[in-house]
């Protein structure tokens, strides 16, 4: 076998081995490397490179090395899933940098972080003033997790006591002009419904680049032809406006009628419409 062919074979073989090993180790390897995983990752890579190019090395020795370097971390991972003490030892603990709004200088020193580095980490989390922070923790991965003081946190609907509609994940039902049947049936809709909605919007299915349906069954589309303006969904704002109008009309009738019985009836129904408005308005606002 000529040497170049040998390299081709070895490279292909190790590509496959590395692919299988990384699949085996799972997603965690990429998303959050602990120091240990970082080192084993580099070692596996360099073993593969070494054996692929160094023709005097035995291929199987290389594979043995890779398997050991991936199997041992995997084993430790499995064990540490079960045991908190081993997990703390292998993956490390978080270090508290700020507690009750006060910087823990000793912990900073212990982790060898300077004040500038702390400020830099805080700025990465969009915090420019240490006084805004209630609690900050340096994760074992080197990220800083920050809990802002309550008054510095973004306002939420529950802070305001605002009733809001629950949210469901949208489903993508059209991609590149093709209808995707599976997501469509997940939300209990079918092709006929979709065609009806598209004709309501006045667009052809071939022209739709992307179409999504939200949790309330409202279709939004993006077209290939960007010169065409798609009307925003009108149904809900229109319904809200109609309910308000009916309510106001009923009140007007109640005021203008001379019959006492009719006045009472209109007034009662105006209150019903008001109640209706209270119930549905969170669901009709975007």
């Amino acid at each position: 076998m000529p040497e170049w062919l040998d390299i081709v074979v070895r490279s292909l073989l190790f590509l496959i081995v590395l692919f299988l090993v990384t699949k085996w180790l799972g997603k965690k390897q990429i998303s959050q490397l602990s120091f240990f995983e970082y080192v084993t990752g580099i070692t596996i890579g360099s073993i593969a490179g070494e054996v692929a190019m160094g023709l005097e090395n035995n291929i199987f020795y290389g594979i043995i090395g890779i398997v050991i370097f991936s199997a041992v971390p995997l084993l430790i991972n499995i064990v540490s899933l079960k045991n908190k003490k081993i997990r703390d030892f292998v993956e490390g603990n978080g270090t508290i940098f700020i507690k009750n709004g006060k910087v823990m200088e000793d912990n900073l020193k212990k982790e060898k972080y300077s004040t500038d580095e702390l400020l830099e980490l805080l700025r990465k989390r969009n915090v420019f003033q240490v006084a805004d922070v209630e609690f900050a923790l340096l994760e074992p991965t080197g990220d800083l997790s920050v809990l802002l003081k309550k008054e510095k946190q973004p306002l939420t609907a529950s802070d305001l006591g605002l009733p809001v509609a629950p949210i469901k994940e949208p489903q993508t039902v059209i991609m590149d002009g093709e209808i995707l049947d599976e997501p469509l049936s997940t939300i209990g809709l079918n092709r006929n419904w979709l065609k009806g909605e598209l004709s309501k919007l006045g667009v052809a299915i071939e022209n739709v680049f992307l179409g999504q349906v939200d949790g309330n069954g409202q279709l939004t589309v993006d077209l290939f032809d960007d010169k065409i303006e798609v009307a925003a969904p009108q149904e809900k704002p229109l319904l809200l406006a109609n309910i308000k109008k009916c309510q106001a009309d009923l009140e007007l009738f109640a005021l203008s009628t001379t019959s006492a019985a009719a006045k009472e009836m209109y007034g009662r129904n105006a209150r019903k419409m008001d109640e209706l408005l209270q119930i549905v308005s969170p669901y009709l606002k975007d």
């Binding site: 069954g217 129904n269 019903k272 419409m273 209706l276 119930i279 969170p282």
Partner: peptide
């Protein structure tokens, strides 16, 4: 909307308000 919405609380709210509208 009652038929189309997936969420149970949304379904219930739409249904309740539909009953109110029917009475009016």
């Amino acid at each position: 909307l009652t038929v189309q919405s997936e969420d149970k609380t949304a379904k219930k709210a739409f249904d309740e308000s539909r009953v109110l509208a029917a009475r009016v």
